[in-house]
Design a binder for these strands. Structure first.
Length: 187
DNA sequence: CGTAAGATGAAG
DNA sequence: TTCATCTTACGG
């Protein structure tokens, strides 16, 4: 997969259309990535902006390393580390369009509203059964995988905007999503 | 409809 | 004290 060999912003855009698949004991869940955000080394909103720490260490791993962190004490978010080893950059997965294991997602989320299952970083983590034990896994080697698109999205228009839920680096246009998609995290 | 606030833990 | 969120409660 040459997805991971480009720069972080390009990867964030290219990830749209790829599938996120989790093969768990409860069953398989999968969704199409429809919304991402990029976090760069020289970006004040990036967890790795200042220095490497125990928490953000996976961001400094080889491209494809999974970084799971807890936010607001309750929720978790998933990132894919990008760039070379020792460069702290990553792409946050913000929304999925569910395609497989929807009944399992509904049980995990305690909701049967399709558009409410994966329309946000904390929601998709719940629906997919992602947990902090996956921290430092790799999307090519472990049970949480990124697989190539099932169809050609290369002509699909992508909207670029500023990121959500941050207080620093607010003006940076590092959020990407498929134009017109109804599964993204904001209406 | 809309907006506002509370939950809750780890890092700095 | 801040924080890359989500849900519920409440007013119109």
């Amino acid at each position: 997969m040459d997805l991971l060999t480009s720069d972080t912003l390009t990867i964030a855009k290219n990830l749209l259309g790829y599938r996120l698949v989790h093969e768990s004991d409860e069953g398989i869940t999968a969704g199409i990535i429809v919304e991402t955000e990029a976090y760069l080394q020289d970006d004040p909103a990036c967890h790795a902006y200042r220095k490497k720490s125990v928490r953000n260490a996976p961001m400094f791993g080889v491209a494809g390393t999974i970084y799971v962190y807890q936010i607001y004490g309750i929720y978790y978010c998933v990132n894919i580390a990008t760039n070379q080893k020792d460069v702290g950059e990553a792409v946050l997965i913000r929304a999925l369009e569910p395609i497989e294991g929807i009944d399992l997602m509904e049980r995990r989320r305690k909701s049967n509203v399709l558009k409410n299952l994966c329309s946000g970083p904390g929601k998709l983590v719940q629906a997919m059964g992602i947990h902090k034990g996956m921290n430092d896994w790799h999307i090519l080697k472990d049970d949480l995988k990124i697989l190539p698109p099932l169809s050609d999205y290369s002509q699909h228009p992508i909207v670029t905007t500023t990121r959500i839920g941050i207080t620093q680096g607010v003006e940076l246009p590092y959020r990407f999503y498929f134009e017109g998609n109804t599964f993204i995290s904001k209406k």
